[in-house]
Write a protein that binds this DNA or RNA. Structure first.
Lengths: 116, 116
DNA sequence: CAACGTCATAACGCTTCCGGAACAATTATC
DNA sequence: GATAATTGTTCCGGAAGCGTTATGACGTTG
């Protein structure tokens, strides 16, 4: 059984989750930042700047800047790759894991409240 | 039947939709901007700056700036309320309606692809 | 070991956004 | 009709984003 959403449900879900996040005063991440954050936490490591840039179809400075901002928020960390010291490996953090987990809970809760 | 999502599904859905948007080179809207845009298009009008600020729990300048940016993208419009000329009514646009509709389609498509 | 790739970041000029305070325009109240 | 309240915008210094280009560190190849 695949997840079947009707148009009004899909948009309403997104709205309700976004509203919840804004109302809760959470960090106002952009779509790009969310894509990076979730990719780091959902896809298997390692994650490099170049790899993320390629996956998102953006330039490397875009990734560097996003990592700067989310790093200041402790949502991700950075570490030199000792095997190839040109690479920077994006590391998960405890705070980031908690953030992502909580975010998933919000989605589930709002999905449950959707009108049929 | 309510929409029941498991934790991994909810986060994966959000990631896939965000990735689709970024890869497609769509406007990189923040969570706040998405909340405003979807509220304007999903909730019944009229929408005022003050009303949106109250609903999102942010200050009025935040709404003004978001409307500036999304107005430049033609996603929303503004119109003076002739009944009470202090008010500004946020108007929907053709471009905005198409944007929102397309976005809903992306959510549905990614939801359908979710692993069980 | 020198020349060339590759990686991530820094630098550049510009735009957007922030929170908070001040503002002009409009309406309500006395 | 003067005063007060309300609405949305503008202004402030500062932070963060953009795309593009340049740079520095590291690895690979001749």
């Amino acid at each position: 059984m695949s997840i079947a959403l009707r148009p009004s449900q899909s948009l309403r879900l997104w709205q309700q989750v976004a509203l919840s996040e804004v109302q809760a005063g959470m960090a106002d991440l952009s779509m790009r930042q969310m894509a990076i954050l979730l990719t780091v936490y959902l896809d298997p490591p390692p994650h490099t700047v170049r790899g993320l840039a390629g996956q998102l179809g953006v330039t490397k400075p875009v990734i560097t800047r996003a990592l700067d901002t989310m790093g200041a928020l402790k949502l991700v960390g950075r570490q030199r790759d000792e095997k190839d010291r040109r690479n920077v490996l994006v590391r998960r953090t405890v705070e980031g894991a908690l953030y992502v987990e909580r975010f998933g809970d919000v989605i589930i809760a709002r999905a449950r409240e959707l009108p049929i």
